[in-house]
Design a protein around this nucleic acid. Sequence first.
DNA 1: TCGTACCAATGAAACGATTCAAACTTTGGC
DNA 2: GCCAAAGTTTGAATCGTTTCATTGGTACGA
Lengths: 340, 340
Amino acid sequence: MNRTASIKDVANHASVAVGTVSNVLNYPDRVSQRTKDRVLKAIDELGFVRNDAARQLRAGHSRTIGLIVLDVGNPFFTSVVRAAEDAAALHGSAVLLGDSGHDAGREANYIDLFQEQRVQGLLISPVGDVTERLDLLRERGVPTVLVDRLADEAKFSSVAVDDDAGGYLAARHLLDTGRRRLAFVGGPTSIRQVADRLQGAQRAVKEEADATLEVLESEGQTVLAGRSVGNMLVERGRENLPDGIFCANDLLALGVMQSLTMTHTYRIPDDVALIGYDDIDFAVSAVVPLSSIRQPTEALGRTAIELLAEEVESQNPTHRAVVFTPELVVRQSTGTSSAG
Amino acid sequence: MNRTASIKDVANHASVAVGTVSNVLNYPDRVSQRTKDRVLKAIDELGFVRNDAARQLRAGHSRTIGLIVLDVGNPFFTSVVRAAEDAAALHGSAVLLGDSGHDAGREANYIDLFQEQRVQGLLISPVGDVTERLDLLRERGVPTVLVDRLADEAKFSSVAVDDDAGGYLAARHLLDTGRRRLAFVGGPTSIRQVADRLQGAQRAVKEEADATLEVLESEGQTVLAGRSVGNMLVERGRENLPDGIFCANDLLALGVMQSLTMTHTYRIPDDVALIGYDDIDFAVSAVVPLSSIRQPTEALGRTAIELLAEEVESQNPTHRAVVFTPELVVRQSTGTSSAG
DNA sequence: TCGTACCAATGAAACGATTCAAACTTTGGC
DNA sequence: GCCAAAGTTTGAATCGTTTCATTGGTACGA
């Protein structure tokens, strides 16, 4: 077999017109059972596969949606992607995935590629400030939904998670379990997520007259950064130790946990309660299973697709910004002091 | 602006023929500087973006390569993807990424989608046994390279990593640092990777007359599975403890490490050396930085693209199977007994 | 028997690029 | 000033679908 079969080959083989073959594929109800059978048989025998380029060219629109994330390795995005794919499948669309890796150049490449492919629309978790590029997309009429980033509602729809609420949730949980001398670990605070989570925590702490919140700025958001903050706490000694620690993400929390438990100086949660953020897979299998704040990633992905579908279907551009509230996951690291 | 500009609009706007616009885009050398400038200006003013569907339809082939992996969340695949994207970019192609999530249905959907898109070729890390489906692809003339899976060289090219060599490397390292009573942790051994790594380890142990290798089968490849094996070891007591442990992956090793160090009964590497496999990000930030076997994921991704390019360019199907040897990464967990 | 619906099937036109033979223009040698 | 060669530009044909006005056939009621 030399060339892949075309719809014309199928038509000849089944002794029908090309339009009929097309109808079998797109509007089966318009075709009688008898000819439908013949055509399907011919398709099977010739191994015909629809040429999407031709279909798209004629139909004027594709069946694909572009999705550009900052890092496919990040479980947060992995989960969003999975949900988006499933939701898109329900709409009969497929997702083309691009990984910008926080690199503006790669992101630009993907935007160009997806434009050339004439995707139905674009879901993007943008690198830094790309207002100009996104404005261009808007002018070109490519419906776009921002993921994990709030947008000017006059211009774009967006889905995001309320980090302030997440911070509040974490701190409130520590307070509810009787902790009063809290510490926040995270940094740099120039990162919006970190700042918002801190702000939420502060809001919760203000509700309790006798509660305090100390901010321990970390150098980055890694296990090692967490461990060095933890080591510092160990050195400060027992009387200066907070009784509840909220870390801006789980990696930091795992690092802090390593420092505090490695030396066997302190016990979690008896001496100090610990809560992280993101609920990564490792949280549950830490030495002391880690309480955390879980982001509704499936809902994010699903809703992003739905917002995009809205934009695609309706002509007049009414944008919506959907904000989700994260969820508290309680594990042993913030259990009520069990040692008694 | 209603409709996106076509090449014809550009031609009108610049007062040239459509063929000239096409030449500007594809063969700039054939066009004089003067008209090139005029055309580029028109392209800019109209915001023209090439319609890839039309180009592909006429040109007969696309500029995209399909890549289907088992799990984008797995750092192994993330790294392969990244390398493949970069290598493809050098060839002027873009990678469309599909995540089968170990699900044959999703995999089939992506294969269909990519066929309809008429990708240049397919890189796939297949779910289970898909010989039939892949044979179909071969008949249809879609060049295919298997990733992380050896293939019948008469049919497909493939890239893979030599797990036997990796197992040998790990065990040999333990032996070289003076350990003699080794243990292998992993399971189920029905997984090819696990079996091969074990086999390699056994080969190394046979080289030393006084060395032994005990197999501790785990239930899965998770931190928790590792921890339960570790707890079992702790209970066995010091005299029955191996002095070197090789885990089939890093998660298991981290679990074993938790058990052994949590109780402060044993010290790593003084009482027992520990080495994992995969060199995940967490390995370096474990309580005791974990030695591991690193797979050459970048080389895998790059080579897969190159093999595919070979198949696309040459007509006669000569397939190659490229096998890479993994690399030993020494960290503290197998350091020579420093406590002395 | 005729007229009217209705249902199926037809096939030419269109989508927007690339390709390529042909037409046109410029250059340089004599 | 003429001619050939080299360099540019042209525009019709083509890729494989979808779309849709039109045709052919059948059934039913008058």
